[in-house]
Design a protein around this nucleic acid. Sequence first.
DNA 1: CGAAATCCGAAAATATCTTTCATGAGTGAC
DNA 2: GTCACTCATGAAAGATATTTTCGGATTTCG
Lengths: 302, 302
Amino acid sequence: MKESFSGDAPPAPAALAAKVRTLAPTMTRSMQLVAEAVAGDPAGCAALTVTGLAELTGTSEATVVRTARLLGYPGYRDLRLALAGLAAQQQSGRAPSVTADIAVDDPIADVVAKLAYDEQQTLADTAAGLDTVQLGAVVAAAAAARRIDIYGVGASCLVGMDLAQKLLRIGLIAHAHSDPHLAVTNAVQLRSGDVAIAITHSGSTGDVIEPLRVAFDRGATTVAITGRPDGPVSQYADHVLTTSTARESELRPAAMSSRTSQLLVVDCLFIGVAQRTYETAAPALSDSYEALAHRHSPRSTR
Amino acid sequence: MKESFSGDAPPAPAALAAKVRTLAPTMTRSMQLVAEAVAGDPAGCAALTVTGLAELTGTSEATVVRTARLLGYPGYRDLRLALAGLAAQQQSGRAPSVTADIAVDDPIADVVAKLAYDEQQTLADTAAGLDTVQLGAVVAAAAAARRIDIYGVGASCLVGMDLAQKLLRIGLIAHAHSDPHLAVTNAVQLRSGDVAIAITHSGSTGDVIEPLRVAFDRGATTVAITGRPDGPVSQYADHVLTTSTARESELRPAAMSSRTSQLLVVDCLFIGVAQRTYETAAPALSDSYEALAHRHSPRSTR
DNA sequence: CGAAATCCGAAAATATCTTTCATGAGTGAC
DNA sequence: GTCACTCATGAAAGATATTTTCGGATTTCG
């Protein structure tokens, strides 16, 4: 029963490629064909009419329209306009096509270059696709929360810990749970006014959904940070923050780019909260900095 | 440079405003109204239908179409596409506003943009400054190591854990230590052929230097990942990998960009090792993926 | 002042986009 | 293995948007 129509709305400007990747798994076969064509050649597709694109992809007009809807546009007409815009941007923004996968025999210098490029791309996609309204709502809730619980396992656990660390530094009560049992145990303690944040790239990690559900039932404000906003986790999320999905190769696991994406979201969340609680956050930050100073040896090894 | 007013022009991309000025004298009154509106607010007009633009300018659909023709497009539809492209270009053109620091009163959307931009910058800097020869040496050592110990505290601890997680996934024996005592205790066990990696942005974190020194004394291959290659930590490091340091503002602690930088280095290291041990790494990766599958609630995998 | 040329918009004609609906393929239950 | 069910899919009807047509209104020039 989520019907979160409010969440996914604003017609994406440049985040189209990212959106295609994010939504691709939820698409049906023929819709994927259309999405692929659109992401692959925005300029070309912008020149086509519905019928043209349908023929090109070997599907029907109806499917094209459906795909446009799924991507967040009211109809094909609007998708086409966005496509034209994207094409123009690419034109002026130069061709960024260093899109080769990382291969087993790539020299190390290439690995560095490709990896850096991919991560940059991921950041851009994430920023473009992030719903700032949702983010603002989450920031407001977190800044006012009595306590903040964060759930994440595997790679997402580290992201959760990063967030918890930072929030603690500005004086908020935040805790990251990786043990599913303890997470649920703690979630029971939550109530209205508290905030629970679940981090899962797949959107379907049971160990993370379960505590979020409990928190949701208890009346806490629940947040999902996920790459699959349509996934099960969103059922129990008052707010969904979407991370981007980058293509992955055999050597480059999805965890790598999803982590980058998650970290950006989490950083934005943190900065937002710090802004809102500036009066207390600023001194807290410098205090914690002071406290660590003696741990760095100008010369002393303790 | 011949003047060809007779509309032989290919659909102009960004030269639209100029074209309007050039052709204005030849236009009739109502056409000028339309042309003006179009040149004045491309983005706004792109959102309008023929009828809408006709009403806005107080003219008729026919006039709008005539104007579009005069400007060199086959019809209004194409003018509209060009307009959308122009709008997108203008949009991306006014990006340099993100070079400023993050301020307390920045709207949330700006925070996202600035943060993403900063992190992208950090990645580029890191990639550019990374010594691939050193990296190659570390990769070689790690791929052949009996065991790999990683030291890091605070934010760097998470980076260390990330690396350990990934190395474990491809079958290497890696462990991240955040407890300084345990780190030292474990470091004593190391010997030649083992690898010890210290992660510290400041390059002078005693809790991290100490175990590295022990490992160094025991004959292990020692690595420092630091933003201060001239810092104390490098004394005991056979190889130094330099991370970049980005400017930080009051709200944006250094930990944020150093973490991004460290993660990139660590990712490169991981990929490098995975390449070297491809025979065992590839199956190990897919195995670990398989093993996790049942933890995700059943969901169509198209 | 009158006539011709031109401009202009209402409405018809056409192209394009959207919705509906029936069909068939795939899926899970029995 | 079969049946019932769901859901993806495209054909075609329906709705919009765009283009064209055409006649009235305005301007220009004799």
